[in-house]
Design a protein around this nucleic acid. Structure first.
Lengths: 264, 264
DNA sequence: GCAAATTTGTTCGTATGTATT
DNA sequence: CAATACATACGAACAAATTTG
């Protein structure tokens, strides 16, 4: 009896969810019913539900009720690939082929291009701690119309004057930016480093991904710094994924083809 | 006035935290003081504090007060490496060298060895969806005495009878398990796939990592499946890291040496 | 070492607002 | 419009953890 009552109620409900006595998607008894069932006050029942909400087991909908969350089929993204070619770009092609395999409808927003002073983070990764002006190319991604990830790539401004003018145009670069930069600027990507952080969403992210505004759902942020043959950073790509619907794969060396389905 | 009062109070405090008016580590006014300051009830003030707690901005300590969370110096782990050698093992050596670089005191628990039926997840990754008996080697890791990560490696039972008997002994395999398996069983690792999931901690994890029991802090789980030259899985290593104090790096191709310090 | 004061945690009751059916 | 269900807000009392005198 060490636990407070609202925890005991929460644990009881949690057990019913685990044993599927309360199925995913089904509605819990209303707060008033639970109040009678557990001989507690409505506020105490609400504390129990709040606990389960924070654990990500249930969601509440005003005017409707409290529901057991559905298991969402996670989207699996493979982030490695040949460091010298296509996917290193992190834009476009690989993303589409990954998704279509799984019977989903991928779409992307138009590419939004801006010229800006780089954030300190990005400037640091680009090897210019003092600051640097960059071209940023931003893209939003959807699957079956639902927001799935956001990505922004940052390129040094000088790439423009050196001939890579398509970087400043809001259109997809079909052959991949790695290939494009090799052809136009003569800079060849030879490797990259991914830096992975899990953090709370900021407000724009919470809005775009339709996350609950309380920061319960984490964001996986991957900052990919690509390097050329002179060990100089040539691009930083920041991708963010809501952690509740995404899983990531990294492959090294010889690995058999993916058996595309698995469960958690 | 769209926002409820507790949100307005939370936003006001959030602003003070952002501008360092309330410094990291410092104590917020008590609930009673905030109640007077905002002309609200204590419960409403508590709702505001709960909101900030969920955002990870403050923590409450019974009997003491509410405090702005300190920025913790995150531990950065590099998870890639030569797919054929040392670190592929994921045990021991690489971990130590990574940590000592950063002036910390890494320690590990004794290795705990068990023979068990593999969990469905693990069996699936090992290519035996029907189930398989495995040797599991479990290890807990600390930095400066604080819990930092846990890791369990699973090897097919048959490796024992084929000569790799040290797998069943609760001692570090200094030369690395990859090398050891190559020498004893003649199985050579040629690559691996990391599968990354972010999820809520389970109870043992919450206890070991001293996480708040409400599941607010996520766990980063990486399941590494290592493959031999015949495209057969030879090992699965599951590592878990609390997301609030860990960042991960993955490197591909040619990448310059890490500039070991950075900030978020 | 103990008692008092302080501070957060739990639980109840009640009233009213807002979203949905 | 009415009924239902969750959301917000207030007030009150006691419990538990911690610090202070």
């Amino acid at each position: 009896m060490a636990n407070p009552m609202y925890r005991q109620i929460a644990e009881d409900l949690q057990g019913q969810i685990k044993t599927k006595e309360l199925r995913p998607g089904s509605q819990l008894p209303t707060e008033l019913e639970l109040r009678d069932r557990y001989s507690a006050s409505r506020n105490t029942v609400r504390d129990a539900i709040k606990w389960l909400t924070n654990l990500g087991l249930v969601t509440t909908r005003p005017g409707q009720g409290t529901f057991v969350v559905e298991d969402t089929d996670p989207f699996v993204t493979t982030l490695s690939g040949d460091p010298k070619t296509g996917f290193g770009g992190g834009e476009g092609t690989r993303y589409r082929s990954e998704v279509t395999k799984r019977n989903k409808e991928p779409t992307t927003s138009p590419i939004q291009v801006e010229i800006q002073e780089a954030e300190p983070d990005v400037a640091q990764l680009l090897g210019k701690p003092g600051g640097i002006v960059v071209i940023s190319r931003h893209e939003k991604r959807f699957i079956d119309g639902k927001p799935w990830s956001m990505q922004t790539s940052f390129y040094p401004m000088e790439f423009l004057s050196r001939g890579a003018d398509r970087l400043s145009q809001p259109f997809d670069i079909e052959e991949g930016t790695v290939q494009y930069l090799a052809n136009t600027v003569g800079i060849h990507q030879v490797g990259y480093r991914d830096w992975l952080v899990v953090r709370a969403p900021d407000t724009p992210e919470a809005i775009f991904f339709q996350l609950p505004p309380d920061g319960r759902t984490s964001i996986i942020q991957i900052s990919r710094t690509a390097y050329d043959g002179n060990e100089q950073p040539m691009r930083v790509t920041v991708s963010v994924y809501p952690a509740d619907r995404n899983q990531l794969l990294f492959e090294f060396g010889q690995v058999p083809k993916q058996d595309t389905d698995r469960e958690s």
